[in-house]
Design a protein around this nucleic acid. Structure first.
Lengths: 230, 230
DNA sequence: TTCACTTATATTGTATACAATATCATGTAC
DNA sequence: GTACATGATATTGTATACAATATAAGTGAA
């Protein structure tokens, strides 16, 4: 018997919806995530909502304060600096491994992700572009074949999206396509030195594209998931 | 009014008990963690047990298989290699930061942790020594002042304990005291170069102390928490 | 008005009840 | 005896009910 094409996985669904909502910038940093509100939006019980929120907390994308509820994380400038340093450390090691292990199929998939990111940019959908940019970095870690790096980067990349949402002064990541393409070229050639340098510059540009003096605006939940009510 | 000296925090309690049980080698890798059994042992509802298990899963100390339950993680040799490489990458960066930021108070606390570890070794309580060794490494990350590193290392150190439980052929970490002491000395002097070299050797010794051909024994839960029933 | 205090409401924390799934034992055919 | 089917049991998954806490609204006195 064939597998059903879509197997229901309610907890993952709630998690995914929230995760995407945050990374697509529909849920701004600092936004309060009311449990019953999410219950109504996603048509699952609070049990699953709380599960999703806890998972997001452990990925550092959501903060949960005892008896006060869950909020979309809002990294301070200090934390942002730590996050970018951690990414620098880990992703340099990732690039090195990727240079050693990248297959032809890996290159094809990475190229496809770059194209997807670019098409989002072309359509002016910067939120999607940002998310796809993160997926490219994560895929690189998967190619590198180190599970702990993948696990750590999943959170760090998500947090970087929050940082960019909060502090970026636009235009900064328009150069991303070129940088990702160059990076992939170096990985394809197995040039560890070049790959690491490009990655270092790339991550440096993220920080340069941010102004850590401005403070973020906070949105509400219903608006972010308005498309679910239509 | 004064704060109560011990504020009840049931979910954290269940989590801590399980975490300590695993890291103290009372719960061997692969052990099935039955929810109702844990319910009876810890006198809390399944809700909190499941919360604790989910958290442990996200720290990679427990594996949860859908509809089949939770098990103490049992890293394969391949994963063990990845974990140790990840630690190498992150902890070299940690040592460097620690060299730059370590205060006198930090040194005192780290020294105290080394002493505690040694006293456990002197008493022949290798399980406690192993746990305290991990706490020393984690404290170093805290001193380094990088939250993502702390977060990532918490899981990696726990997993390393599992690896040692599964694959160590004894005597390997008797040299830990000297190595930790030397490491602290380098950090105190702010000698980044020396600190990184010592850390690299130290982590290398962990791998050398393991034989990745033997397979682990599996214990049951009641035995591990027998002290709670007395 | 403004502050403190009290009460009502909303929200989160925990336990329990019910549903779905998997596991194990029993029995039957071959 | 082995393999497979079938039913009983145990275990996990999800929803709901109740308890504890925080938040907001209202009330009165200075």
């Amino acid at each position: 018997m064939l597998q059903p094409l879509v197997k229901k996985d309610a907890p993952m669904d709630a998690y995914r919806q929230l995760f995407d909502g945050i990374l697509s910038q529909r849920l701004a940093p600092g936004t309060k995530l009311n449990e019953v509100e999410l219950t109504l939006l996603f048509s699952v019980s609070r049990t699953l909502i709380r599960q999703a929120l806890q998972r997001l907390q452990l990925e550092q994308v959501v903060e949960i304060h005892k008896n006060r509820g869950a909020f979309v994380a809002a990294p301070t400038p200090e934390l942002a600096e730590q996050i970018l340093l951690a990414r620098h450390t880990i992703e340099l090691a990732v690039v090195k491994l990727a240079c050693q292990r990248c297959t032809v199929a890996d290159v094809q998939q990475l190229q496809k992700m770059i194209d997807l990111e670019q098409s989002a940019i072309d359509q002016g959908d910067m939120a999607t572009a940002l998310r796809r940019s993160g997926e490219f970095h994560l895929q690189l870690a998967i190619v590198a074949g180190n599970q702990p790096f993948v696990h750590a980067l999943r959170g760090l990349i998500s947090q970087t999206s929050l940082i960019i949402t909060m502090y970026s002064h636009g235009g900064g990541n328009a150069c991303a396509r070129d940088e990702h393409s160059q990076l992939l070229e170096a990985v394809k050639l197995g040039d560890e030195q070049q790959g690491q340098e490009l990655m270092a510059h790339h991550l440096g540009h993220i920080a340069q594209g941010c102004d850590f003096n401005q403070s973020p605006q906070v949105a509400n939940v219903k608006g972010a998931f308005a498309h679910l009510n239509s």
